[in-house]
Design a protein around this nucleic acid. Structure first.
Lengths: 195, 195
DNA sequence: CTGTAATTTCAGTTATTCTTGAAATGACAG
DNA sequence: CTGTCATTTCAAGAATAACTGAAATTACAG
């Protein structure tokens, strides 16, 4: 690895963490390099820094592009592809969450709804049906909250997160019950129309 | 697989999703079976339902126990181990988040802080240093918020999540800036007693 | 103790995923 | 077109991870 020790340590750690979250270790490392870099990098530069084969880097970049996690750039008078990560870390978080939601949460919600259509025909299945239903409700609550948060500007979002549980006190002062009453999980607009 | 079609579909889907989140597919399936089950199950019963080898199930259960995701039970006059998942889905979410934080987020924070100790000695490293610092701050903000939420009773938590962005309106009514000002991530008060 | 049922361990096998070099494709200046 | 550089694809090999059966260990009733 052709990286400063700070960078190398981070890259290795990030690759390791990525692999625990279902992301190929080398893809994680490629991302980490881009994340830390000053300037856009082309594939050859990543090869030099990480020592992977050219084709492996190519595949990693393709994967990262499929996740919208890197941006393709071009430099004047240079036909190679250069890549960067967004400057704004919150943008990165938004993209990551949006992609995982799209790929994993939404299909799971669809599956749960589909399974709930089938009516159970045994005690065991009745119980299973009930659990699936609770799970669906929980996911709907969380994704509904996510949709709300996702609409906020970053500064607002940071404010709300900083407030944390203190928001409770504010909520206590206001007419919380009427607001809660207006938004039961049953009258949320179905997630499918948000695509 | 010896499961009703509803159960089988969920188990397969869940195993698939698990594998995308860094969880061994069969471990995910074992969890799914327990999650849906009416009653506590022993290893042999899981073998029958899923068709894995006895030792594979044993290892899967061990893994799930290491994550505190299943609970060990004993039935009267039966020395076999029986397993269940918590009745309360929110409890499951809390455990999952707590474990992932402990295993992945906390070590990452430590690593970031450790790397920030080293002072950068090149432009590239100065930039990298800056990015690591931003990343640490972002994670600190998120984990601080998580700590706050985690202290709430489930009902309160659900209320806040249901409110979603509406909380903005409440925040607008109150003196939000003074509250925000009082809570820099460094001076969080220990037990916000609201419970 | 002894015998038996239950569980766990572990070395070897199998399956899956990752990585690579070589070849193919694409892009474009001359 | 043609030649060059950049990127991608792909089949084969390498590395990991998962799974198994057999043996070892544990737990406990008699």
């Amino acid at each position: 690895m052709n990286l400063s020790s700070i960078q190398q340590e981070f890259v290795l750690h990030f690759g390791e963490m990525g692999s625990r979250w279902g992301i190929n270790r080398t893809v994680g490392q490629i991302y980490a390099v881009l994340f830390l870099s000053n300037t856009p990098l082309n594939a050859e530069q990543i090869v030099e820094k990480l020592g992977f084969s050219r084709s492996n880097v190519s595949m990693g970049l393709k994967e990262l592009q499929a996740w919208s996690l890197v941006r393709l750039r071009h430099l004047p008078d240079d036909r190679r592809d250069y890549f960067t990560t967004p400057e704004d870390l919150w943008e990165i978080v938004r993209i990551l969450v949006a992609e995982r939601k799209k790929r994993e949460i939404d299909p799971t919600l669809s599956k749960l709804r589909e399974l709930e259509m089938q009516s159970p025909d045994s005690d065991a299945d009745r119980h299973a049906h009930e659990r699936l239903s609770e799970l669906r409700e929980l996911i709907e609550l969380l994704t509904g909250w996510y949709d709300d948060m996702n609409r906020l500007e970053t500064e607002r979002l940071k404010q709300l997160l900083s407030l944390g549980a203190k928001i409770q006190k504010l909520a206590g002062k206001a007419d919380i019950l009427s607001l809660v009453g207006r938004r039961k999980s049953s009258d949320k607009t179905p997630a499918e129309k948000e695509a």
